[in-house]
Nucleic acid binder design. Structure first.
Lengths: 227, 227, 227, 227
DNA sequence: TATGAATGAGTGTTCATTCAT
DNA sequence: TATGAATGAACACTCATTCAT
């Protein structure tokens, strides 16, 4: 009769992950004790080690699943979406919501990435997919317009621009959202619309002018339109 | 006679702080042991507690001194600098070098700021001064041009824009510099010039167009010039 | 019809015991985990607790069965064997092979016996049977020769001699065999023949001279012959 | 005024080692907890890790110091001692007392040596010195008598004989002394004299007859005398 | 000002054992 | 007879902090 809550492997594992995600975000990875995770998940500490090899393995599992989820959404987004200017907001919504749903684990990713001793920050795994999508889209447009392939320098410039003025601001918006609301005394909506405006006026505007400068004004089947 | 290397209170204290800054940046605050600090500073562990009440106190001292130094530089920078476009690069250099010199402690600040449990992230203390400088400068220009004071909404938009597309990208550039060089396969110089270019084409360009839109084309005694 | 591999109680139990014996010998009792036994035996960990009350119970079962097996062989050996000198080697073979077959569990017994806290080392259970066989044989000979029963002191001397120069060297040979081969750089055969020689020249030679000293030169129906 | 007991590094370290030695002997290495050592030594557990890198390091320290002590005594013993038969008992006393003083740590060595997974048992380090002393002495005698150097086979036979019928019985006597007294119902003195008798009648007798067989009846400046 | 010794409270991890099915 | 899930009690080791000198 009663839906058995205990003894369900998948559910328990998920609960551990969920709790770990929250606590890591609240106190950082090092600041979170396995005991805390156990207690908050309502399971025995040893059970955590039944599902995960180590505390690090929990973090890895969180990272991996977050990255996979993000990648999946990005791929499908760039697939079925026309980059018309009037769709900017919709794209923005999708991406911000996407990261937002994983904001806690993304925050942990940032924390770990900030450690100088960290060799291969997971942050870049996500960034790569975002950037990859944008750069690829642009290359397609260029090829269609008769421009040759990008030079190495052009590619590098693109990567850096996308990273520091495209994806990172979005990530920062997501992870610092609450702090900003408090510090600047804004509602969630205010902050969101102000950030969207700022993003449009900087990163998006740059894209538009870049395309215009390269004579990409009309798009094959209706891609990014600049005016 | 006496080569006063040991027994010099100020020097020892400074060495402890310097070592702590490096180790905190390398391994995070939680990942750094007081033993490590002691060993690397070449002092007895107990001596650290003679100079600092606790490990946290070391971090606070680092934050405080870093913030003070940053503020001091910013104030003097905005004082004696003409925001002509041809000076953008010089301003950029000054600011980036400023943060860069404190990059490690800034990285720690970011880490701490990312924790959801953190009430008043130190990050904003620094950001406020940067933003404050820019916003004040703009307000001065506006007043001079006959525009009234900024509306609340305009101010908020300005704050958000400065934070997410102005100061944060610079901070990110500084703290992720090494990781980016490695990940994108660039030299320090390449990354710097690409980032500067990206910054100009987004945040700076936004400022220029904003000013132009508001008819601020000439400056009293030679402020920001848009063309 | 049914290939009864699983679901065969006796076989499973035996497999658990066999695996436990190997692992205990390899890593010691404390160094062996029940998980390891389960994994190596290819059974579920909980099943082990279906067959055995505890980890200690597994060890006890191993001890008990080993001791019983040893006793059984000893009894039959001393029954049907003539202690002629030319049979020394055959006796030696039988005994060494006997212990050798249980060498792993014997090693564990020794380990347990070495603990000062151990009250009644199992080691003596086995030793008693070996010693008992020899002493009894000798007593039979003496009685037959007209010597009276042994004095208490003679018995005690016999026990000690048998223990330290008879059974223990054989046990040591078996349990340290591999280590000795490696350390002394010998093949199994070399070590065996050298040990047999050493055993003959010490313990066996002592027996012979002892018997001779007591005028036991001929044997009723062909027992130990000294020259 | 009061002789300061605390805060004396050497004393504390020694107390830890002493307690560890006792507990390891009582319960085995794996059966002893660091907490137990701390409690019995009357020190904080962390202090143990201030003096020793790990639990294994404690064992190593015990082994190393025991081995060094044993080696030192052996060297001086074989140096200044005449191997006359009437001195056998004195030699025996010295060696047995020597091992006896380290009986607990020797017992632990045996336990560890019994683990099949143990690569280089410490047991052999001690055994080598005992055996080395005896073998060298014999070689000297042979050389003096005009016998050439030992063949490889002779050396190997000697090593095996010394190990299994010389040093190991003595070690066994020492480590099983208490158990034997209890099991065989003897006093310490009884056991000792019985064992000495057994040792003389086997290992020592073998040495004597071996020498006689090789015509070593008189000794240069009074070494081992066989009759 | 400086240090070696000492401590209490963790901290990740393990393991024998049991439960529910 | 068999299993996957769950647990409590350890356990080796760590670390910020303090004491005595």
């Amino acid at each position: 009769m009663a839906t058995c809550k205990k003894r369900d492997s998948a559910v328990t594992r998920a609960r551990i992950l969920s709790v770990a995600e929250r606590l890591f975000a609240e106190n950082g990875f090092d600041g979170t004790r396995v005991d805390d995770i156990a207690e908050n998940a309502g399971v025995n500490k040893a059970l955590i080690y039944y599902y995960f090899k180590s505390k690090d393995a929990i973090l890895d599992a969180l990272f991996t699943s977050a990255i996979q989820e993000v990648i999946q959404v990005i791929v499908s987004t760039y697939d079925d979406m026309q980059l018309q200017e009037d769709e900017i907001e919709r794209i923005f919504d999708v991406l911000v919501d996407l990261i937002g749903r994983k904001k806690r684990i993304v925050a942990v990713m940032l924390m770990e990435s900030l450690k100088a001793s960290n060799e291969k920050p997971h942050l870049f795994k996500i960034a790569d997919y975002f950037i990859g999508g944008e750069v690829e889209t642009l290359e397609q447009l260029f090829k269609h317009k008769g421009h040759g392939v990008l030079t190495e320098q052009e590619r590098k410039q693109m990567l850096v621009t996308e990273f520091f003025t495209g994806i990172m601001p979005m990530i920062n918006y997501v992870v610092y959202s609450e702090h900003c609301q408090k510090h600047f005394g804004m509602t969630r909506q205010e902050l969101r619309s102000h950030f969207l405006e700022a993003f449009k006026m900087t990163h998006v505007a740059y894209h538009m002018s870049y395309l215009k400068r390269h004579g990409v004004n009309e798009f094959p089947e209706g891609h990014i339109n600049t005016e």
